[in-house]
Nucleic acid binder design. Structure first.
Length: 174
DNA sequence: TACACCACGCGAT
DNA sequence: ATCGCGTGGTGTA
């Protein structure tokens, strides 16, 4: 009989809506951008490709004491960097590589899909970069909104309005 | 294998 | 503005 392997999550309400923070073994594994209802937020969580788990377990306390304050600070426009340990082991080498490169883009800076590709092992695979970022289960903490196309915003899983909102929080315009 | 799909970039209309 | 093509990772069968 194998040990149960739950996926832990917690709701966090912000002025912009309800977010979900998800983790396993004290490693950050998922983040859901603010939604109008907890149900919608949970729906997003379920749509993610998450690490192996056999159940969901709702917790009231996060493994990182100041994380929720940092999230709220971010949404109120403060310059916040996230350093909590994450897990993205469920993805291929390539996807992990792209997510790791993206994780290192600081608050207030952007890179193009092409620039991210050039920092990876496949210098010309800028389309694959977009595909990898589309699977990002930890937006904000892995700041995929800071990767834009050379002459437009590019795309965003939550809709371009969200991408623009996040970039605007970080002082970008249009 | 073989396809189709894609959050791109570039050059030619 | 729009089109067509190169490009490469991934999912599906």
């Amino acid at each position: 009989m194998r040990k149960s392997n739950p996926f832990f999550y917690s709701f966090l309400s912000t002025p912009l809506g309800t977010t979900i923070i998800g983790w396993q073994n004290d490693l950050l594994a998922a983040f859901v951008l603010p939604q109008p209802s907890p149900e919608k937020a949970f729906h997003y969580l379920q749509s993610y490709h998450l690490p192996q788990h056999d159940s969901f377990k709702l917790e009231t306390q996060l493994p990182w004491p100041d994380f929720s304050d940092k999230v709220n600070a971010y949404f109120s426009g403060e310059k916040v960097g996230f350093s909590e340990p994450i897990t993205i082991d469920q993805f291929s080498d390539y996807t992990r590589q792209i997510l790791n490169v993206t994780k290192n883009i600081p608050w207030g800076e952007v890179k193009t899909y092409q620039q991210v590709a050039q920092l990876s092992s496949q210098k010309r695979a800028y389309r694959a970069v977009g595909q990898a970022l589309h699977r990002n289960p930890i937006p904000l903490i892995i700041p995929c909104h800071r990767v834009v196309a050379k002459s437009s915003l590019g795309g965003f899983g939550y809709g371009l309005d969200w991408k623009l909102r996040l970039l605007t929080l970080e002082k970008f315009q249009s």
